[in-house]
Simulated scan of single mutants.
Amino acid sequence: MPNTLRIAAALLIAPQGRTLLVRKRGTVAFMQPGGKIDAGESPVEALVRELHEELGLRIDPAQAIHLGQFSAPAANEPGYQVQAELFRVDSAEAVTPAAEIEEVVWLAADQAPAFELAPLTRDLILPLYRQAVSVPR
């Protein structure tokens, strides 16, 4: 597949059921934390590394539940698709934006975000998240 970015992404869920979205410096769209999978790295290794670099979060790879592979147009690289290995990570740890992360926001399942979302987040991951926490409407 040409012009594909392979990433590992976390559907990070706090004890009260909210999920974390991040925005990279110089961009407008919010998305799941995570990042590109380096050569020779497994998706879960990339996830553990990225969560630590971006948020100061240390997770046990065994806690990351693989939810599947999802593809969508890349938010910040025109003409590219992202192919994300998505993992659910339940964490009560505090997060601190670091590296290229400029802003973090916790979103509740019943909350309509008033900001721009990456296509992958908007079209695939948030619907999955809302289903996973199955908030009664």
Rank of each mutant, 00 (worst) to 15 (best):
P2D: 07
N3C: 10
N3R: 12
L5K: 10
R6A: 08
I7T: 13
A8G: 06
A9S: 12
L11I: 02
L12Y: 02
L12D: 09
A14D: 12
P15N: 14
P15M: 14
V22C: 07
R23N: 08
R23W: 04
K24R: 14
R25W: 07
F30S: 09
F30G: 03
M31E: 13
Q32R: 06
G34D: 06
G35I: 12
D38P: 02
A39I: 08
A39R: 03
G40M: 08
S42I: 00
S42T: 15
P43C: 06
P43M: 11
H52N: 15
E53G: 05
E54M: 05
L55V: 07
G56L: 13
G56K: 06
R58Y: 03
R58L: 15
I59H: 04
P61Y: 04
A62V: 05
Q63S: 15
Q63C: 06
A64P: 03
A64Q: 14
I65S: 05
F70L: 14
F70D: 09
F70E: 13
P73K: 04
P73G: 03
P73W: 00
N76Y: 10
Q81F: 01
Q81N: 06
Q83I: 05
E85P: 01
L86Q: 09
F87Q: 11
V89L: 04
V89N: 05
D90Y: 02
S91R: 09
E93D: 15
A94T: 13
V95I: 09
P97H: 01
E102I: 03
E103R: 09
A108Y: 00
A108S: 05
A109C: 14
A109Q: 10
Q111E: 15
A114C: 12
F115K: 04
L117T: 09
P119K: 15
P119A: 14
T121R: 02
R122A: 15
R122L: 12
D123Q: 12
D123K: 04
I125F: 04
L126I: 09
L128I: 05
Y129Q: 08
A132M: 15
V133T: 08
S134D: 11
P136V: 12
